[in-house]
Each structure stands twice: as C-alpha cells, then as structure tokens.
C-alpha cells in the first residue's frame, strides 16, 4: 500500500521516494529494488509528471554508515564494530530496525531530492515501538545515563563508580547477578564505545521526533474489514494522537466490491435455475457477511476526526504483480 501511495504522489507530479524494510519479491522486482543495496533506485513509471524512487532499508548498512560517519576517529569506529552486542544489534536482533528506518527517513528528507518520502512501517504492534523509538533512543543516550556505564578503566568514574547513586549500584549489581559479568562487560563496552556518538544520536533522534510530529508529516493507517483489525487501527489512532502525530488517512483494504443491484438479480431464461439458485444463495451469504463488516467500518469511520480521509480498496483487486497493478491501486487511492 505504501508503494501505491508513492505511485499516486508521482502521478500528481511529486518527486517521491518509497522506503521499505522487507518487500515481497515481485513487488521488489516491479520497483527495481535490490535487496541489500540500500540505494535509491529510479522506478521507470511512464506518463507521470513526477519521479518515483524506491529503496530497501538495509539495517546493517545504515547502522555501520552512521557509526563510520559520526564516530570520526578510526579506532572508535573499530571498537564499536568489534563490540559483540553491537554486531548482534545491527544484524540479527530486532530493535535496530526502528532506529535505522528513522535515520534513513531523516537522511532522505534532508537530501532535498524528494518532495515526499513514504515509509512503510511494520504492522500495528510494532508500529507503536516504531513511533516511540526516537524518545527511547534519546532517553538511553542521555549523558547522565551513559556515564553509569563508563569503563572501569576510566579513572574519573568507572563502573559502579562514585557518581552512581546507591539505587543504581544495587540495580546494576542485581542485573549482573542475573545475566553474568560478561554480559555486563559487553554492555559497558557497548555504552562506552557509543558514547562518542551519543550527542549525534541524541540530536538525530530529536530531529526525527520534530520531523514526525511536524506539519509536513502525516500518518496513514491501513486496516481491513475485520472487527479485531479495526479495533487495532483504533488503538493505533489513539497512540498517534497521544504521541502528538497527525493521522491523515485510513485505508480500508479488502472491502467487498459494490454488490449487484437487486433489480438485476433475476435468473435469465437461458440459465439452469438450480445453478443460478446455488450461486445466488452463495452471493447472499457473501453479501450478508460483508454487510456486518461494513457496519463495523461505518462505526470506525465515524470515530475518526473529519480531517482524516478514508479510502476503501475493494476485495476484487488482484494481487500486485507489477507496476501496472500498483498504478491501478494508486488510481483507487
């Protein structure tokens, strides 16, 4: 859906970039994306006045690039890259995706190359983690906190050093009891190493937060005709509101297509009445099933502020195979 929004913006003449974390293969092929490249690719759309680019976010590359750029000294870069927790964080462990996606978003908006950047976020449960990532990163890399994890070799303070309050000392000691000395050592090394980039990290996370809460940024919730999914979307809407983000649109996917008008539901003479009856019963069952969902959707739509645009995308849309399918979807949007 993020790609279709980007195509629509391109149709409207804007220079657009769509950033995605984990695209399906055919969609990636359609957009000309190469996994692991992390480069912006021009997508060959014809008959549009704008320009469309697309990129897959490669967490490891973004992370390593960020460290290499901001740590400045080669030995510091090497130390961070060597830290085993950093290696795990920037490759296999989740949690880093939020940071790298937001960093990539900021880079793209600051490049001046695009009028619109569309970021495909993870599904709902992780979307909230995603939205709070700037504050979480900011709170962790405050100087007052990283100081607690300074190296024991640092003569001014040291781990469990003088500046640590008694409460923190006890809490850290408890963590050491539970996880072991090696884990704590790696943590100390991790925080000591990233301390050199903490001011940049803090500054970047503040800028991301400003960007995300600013008037130039809007959020679009994609949901479907399903009670629980609509409840999830409602929850996300509440979270967006609470965190100061602006919801601008809701896309309801897999809506039942417009039904057949009642006056046309009469068996023509040339049709086997038994066949017609069976298909008609099935159609009625289908229509009833979707009308229940339609009521839920109505309820959901009424609960949204009037500034939020709601779009229904019909069920009969076939799968997105290529650019022409994306353009069809964009036309509906």
């Amino acid at each position: 859906m993020a790609s279709a929004i980007a195509v629509r913006a391109t149709q409207l003449g804007r220079r657009t970039l769509v950033l995605t974390v984990d695209p399906a293969k055919r969609l990636a092929t359609a957009l000309g994306l190469e996994l692991g490249s992390d480069q912006d690719h021009r997508v060959p759309l014809t008959n549009v006045s704008g320009e469309l680019s697309a990129a897959v976010i490669d967490s490891k590359k973004v992370f390593d690039g960020f460290i290499a750029k901001h740590a400045q000294q080669a030995d510091v870069v090497a130390r961070i890259m060597k830290n085993r927790l950093y290696q795990q964080m920037s490759t296999t462990l989740s949690g880093s995706q939020e940071f790298t996606a937001l960093e990539r978003l900021l880079q793209a908006t600051e490049s001046g190359k695009y009028d619109l950047v569309v970021l495909d976020t993870p599904p709902t449960k992780h979307a909230v983690d995603f939205l709070t990532a700037p504050q979480r990163i900011n709170s962790l890399f405050q100087d007052s906190i990283t100081r607690w994890f300074m190296s024991p070799n640092d003569s001014s303070t040291g781990f469990f050093g003088k500046i640590v309050g008694r409460g923190t000392r006890v809490a850290l000691k408890s963590l050491e009891t539970l996880t072991g000395a090696q884990f704590i050592e790696e943590l100390i090394d991790f925080f000591a190493a990233v301390r050199s980039v903490q001011s940049v990290l803090r500054e970047r996370s503040e800028r991301v937060h400003q960007l995300m809460t600013g008037p130039q940024t809007g959020f679009v919730v994609v949901t479907s005709f399903d009670a629980a999914k609509l409840m999830e979307a409602k929850y996300l809407q509440g979270e967006l509101d609470r965190l100061g983000y602006r919801l601008q649109g809701a896309i309801i996917n897999r809506a039942f297509p417009e039904g057949v008008p009642d006056h046309l539901l009469e068996a023509p003479d040339n049709v086997d009445p038994q066949v017609y009856g069976k298909v008609l019963d099935f159609y009625k069952q289908f229509k009833e099933y979707h009308s229940v969902r339609y009521n839920l959707y109505e309820e959901f739509s009424k609960g949204l502020p009037s500034s939020v645009k709601v779009v229904r995308v019909p069920e009969y849309q076939r799968d997105v195979y290529g650019l022409s399918d994306l353009e069809n979807l964009a036309n509906i949007l």
Binding site: R84, L85, Q87, Q88, T91, T92, L93, T177, L178, T179, G180, A181, Q182, F183, E186
Partner: peptide, 13 residues
C-alpha cells in the same frame, strides 16, 4: 543464537 555468540559465559550465555 545471537546472544550466545556474543555472551558465552555467565547466566545470560
């Protein structure tokens, strides 16, 4: 797997 590669000793490992 990631954690045990990073932390070999102690309760976490």
């Amino acid at each position: 797997k990631g954690m045990m590669e990073a932390i070999k000793f102690g309760p976490m490992g």
